[in-house]
Amino acid sequence: MMDEELKKLEAELARLKPRQPSRRLEAGIAGELANPQSGSVAWWKPVLAAAATIALAAGAWSFFIPGQKVPKVAEVSPPSTVAVDTQNDLASARTSADRARRVFRPVKVQTALLGYRDDGIILTSRNRPVRSRSCQLLDYVELESLDGKRKIMVTKPRKEIVLARAHVL
C-alpha cells in the first residue's frame, strides 16, 4: 500500500518541471568568463608575462645601440565598436569584395548585470529622497563582416547609477 503511494507520488513529482533559469544566468556566466577575475592564474599568463618582458628588453636594447635605427612598429587600430555602414565609409572601400571584408555590422548585442549595490537613500539637489543603486554592467556587441567570414566580439564594462523614488513616509 505504502509502495503504491510512493510510486504515485514519484509520478506526480516527475510531472513537475523545474523552472527554467532566467537569461541573467547565461549572461552572467558569459560575462564572468569574458572578464575573468584574478582568482586563478592560467598557465599561459606567466609565459605571456615572460615573453612581454623579453620583448620589452629587446626593444630597449635596440633603442640604445648607437647607429641602429629603431624598428618601426605597425600601428594597429582597435576594431570599431560601431557599424561602419555609412555612405562615407562605403565609399572608402575600394571594391565590393574589399568592402564585404572590411565593413562590420552588429549582429548580436547583449547586456549582462554583473552585480549591484544598494547605496541607500540619498537626497537630490532638490532635497528629494531617492534610493541609489550602483549597477555593474557588461555590454557585448558581436560584429560580423558583411561577407560573414570574420567576427569581432567587443565587450565594454560600465557602471550605471539608478535612482528610484524612495517612499519614506
Partner: peptide, 28 residues
Amino acid sequence: LIDEHGAKLVLYARQWCDSLVDAEDAVQ
C-alpha cells in the same frame, strides 16, 4: 550544460538558497 541541466541545477541550488536570484548566483 546550462541548456540541458540549468533548470535542474538551479532547483538543486534552491535547496539551500531562499531566492531564485541566489540560486542562479550559486550555479553561475
